[in-house]
Amino acid sequence: MTQAAFAPAETLRLQPYTDHCRVIADEGAHVVIGVSPGNSYFTAQRLRELTRWGMDHFDQVDLVYTDLHVSDMYEALGYGADEARRKAVKNLRGVRAKVAAAVAEADPTGVRVRGRGMSEFGDVPAYRALHRTVLDAVAADPLVRETCDALTGIFLAGKLAPGQRTDERQREVCRAYICAEVPLFLDTPAILGVPSSLNCYHQALPLADLLYGRGPGLRASRNQGHGILTPTDTPDRGAAR
């Protein structure tokens, strides 16, 4: 569905990252709404709001949550292996249930709205190729690695004790967690076979500065967009570039 503008009286506000991202948003073909397991922002009510918003503005909606490296992350944060596995299972069971409930309520047919774990993309050739590209870029391009490390710092900031420094094992696991998600910021259309796609999250990420920069390097495809999707009562983060 083509959307000329987003209705002002909504509970959620989209800020496309660039003017080109706004064009992709207006096309309204497909949206990925990222859901972080263990993040208190993603309540059952919030997921219902996100799903309804997606259906109002896009032909297809995918709620995607990360279900890779979660146990490894808990272990790197200091939990024993068994406890880390238990926490990961409990965490992922909760997010799956909330996502499934939001999807079933919004679209019982499952035609327009789907809930997916990142692990479901592992057998998709385009995802595997993009993931390899990301790993190679992290290894070879200092700017990509610095950006990844900045994301690692953001991710770990709320999980460590005050004054605790990150160690290399934590950074390594967090990089793996992040790199599993990056292909959906690079080229969701290639992965899912949709004409264009907007990837939405509720926070500004250093990754966007990298992927939508000028010149060579790791860059989003022309039919891939990004937007910051927040409740309307949060401060505006600025206009598209």
Rank of each mutant, 00 (worst) to 15 (best):
V144N: 09
L192K: 00
Y127M: 13
A126M: 09
R169Q: 07
T133A: 15
R93N: 14
D136T: 15
A180W: 00
P189W: 12
D167V: 00
D107V: 04
L198P: 03
G122A: 14
A88K: 00
G115P: 06
F185Q: 12
Q164N: 04
L184M: 15
L186G: 03
Y201E: 05
I154C: 06
L186P: 01
G158T: 00
Y177E: 02
V194D: 00
N91I: 03
Y127I: 09
A101F: 04
A126N: 15
G117D: 02
L205P: 05
R145N: 14
A176Y: 04
A204R: 13
V173P: 03
F185N: 14
N199L: 15
A101R: 09
V113H: 06
E168I: 07
P108F: 02
P206Y: 13
T133E: 15
L92E: 12
D187G: 05
A88E: 05
R114Q: 15
R128C: 12
A139Q: 15
T133H: 13
C174E: 09
A140M: 13
L160V: 01
N91G: 03
D167M: 04
G94A: 11
A190I: 10
A129P: 06
V111I: 11
A140F: 09
R114Y: 10
S196P: 07
L184G: 08
G94H: 01
N91S: 13
C174V: 13
K98H: 09
P183E: 10
I178N: 02
